[in-house]
Design a protein around this nucleic acid. Structure first.
Length: 292
DNA sequence: AGTTGTGTTGAAGA
DNA sequence: ATCTTCAACACAAC
């Protein structure tokens, strides 16, 4: 479940580990993972390009490459990029991690794409549910893709003011939780953090966004910043199968406030946490603290 | 053994 | 236009 803090962690790790390296090969056993152009063209086009820098916009990982090329990876629900070494059996498509450690864990074994680097290490995409997508091309074309172009401001962008946040979020009539999670409104907030943010701000997840008071909106903005930054420091959440580039878990999961804590006492008032549906996603909240 | 739920988000349907 | 539902896919838990 890579949300903003998880993607940020991965992008930073990658920048530290592979910036300056040259890509010499690409392999996949799941052609659909390459959204554009196609696996063959990606393989040919990316050979010999150097990774200049790795960054992030919303939940997209962006590799800035030489010759003004760009590689975009969206990890979607269960995807995560790792750096290490693997043996690829090209006949059976079986990928085996070399060496011991976290990369041996089952959750890290659903590898469907690998970029080989000049010095022998690899960037691998493990994705159990195969929702992740890769795009490659000229930087200007990649940045024009709706994946990037349609995104609202990044939730942690220093340029995002309370005023703009209020204007964008407050004009929607759908539930505040669904609005916070809508990437075209604000980019980066997913289910886990939306639940924790709304609990912290004491706002009911089903309250229509345009009915949220100015004061509540201030609280939501404040807690969005605070919680996401804290989660970045803790290297994200691993409730399910998220792992960092070393295949290791994040630590925010240990201190989740309400997400998936149905029946547990509210940390403020002790009332059991309830679970409901917003859209077709679960939402967890305290029926006493969080007002409609 | 079948049903239900799981992070995302685009596209289709209303 | 705007909101809701579904689909992509695999697996664990009940």
């Amino acid at each position: 479940m890579p949300e903003l803090p998880e993607v940020e962690t991965i992008a930073r790790d990658l920048n530290r580990k592979v910036a300056g390296e040259t890509i010499v090969d690409f392999w996949t056993d799941w052609p659909k993972v390459v959204k554009r152009p196609n696996p063959t063209q990606l393989r040919q086009g990316i050979k010999g390009l150097q990774i200049r820098r790795v960054g992030r916009i919303g939940k997209n990982v962006l590799f800035h490459l030489s010759e003004n090329k760009m590689l975009l990876v969206h990890q979607k629900m269960t995807g995560h990029l790792m750096v290490g070494k693997w043996r690829i059996d090209k006949k059976t498509g079986k990928v085996t991690p070399l060496g011991k450690g976290a990369l041996q864990e089952k959750v890290n074994q659903y590898i469907h794409a690998i970029f080989t680097l000049e010095k022998g290490s690899m960037i691998a995409l493990s994705d159990m549910r195969k929702f992740a997508r890769i795009a490659f091309g000229d930087e200007e074309d990649i940045l024009k893709l709706p994946d990037i172009n349609k995104l609202g401001p990044d939730a942690l962008s220093p340029k995002l003011s309370v005023k703009e946040f209020k204007e964008r979020v407050g004009e929607r009539s759908k539930a505040i939780k669904a609005t916070l999670m809508d990437p075209s409104v604000v980019a980066g907030i997913g289910n886990i953090y939306a639940d924790d943010i709304l609990w912290s701000a004491r706002v009911h997840p089903l309250k229509p966004a345009n009915k949220v008071t100015a004061k509540e909106m201030d609280e939501i903005f404040e807690h969005t910043q605070r919680i996401l930054k804290r989660a970045v420091r803790l290297r994200g959440t691993s409730v399910g199968d998220y792992r960092d580039t070393a295949g290791r878990k994040g630590r925010y999961g240990r201190e989740v406030l309400v997400y998936q804590k149905t029946g547990d006492p509210c940390l403020r008032c002790g009332t059991p946490i309830q679970r409901t549906k917003v859209g077709q996603r679960s939402a967890h909240f305290c029926p006493r603290c969080q007002k409609l």
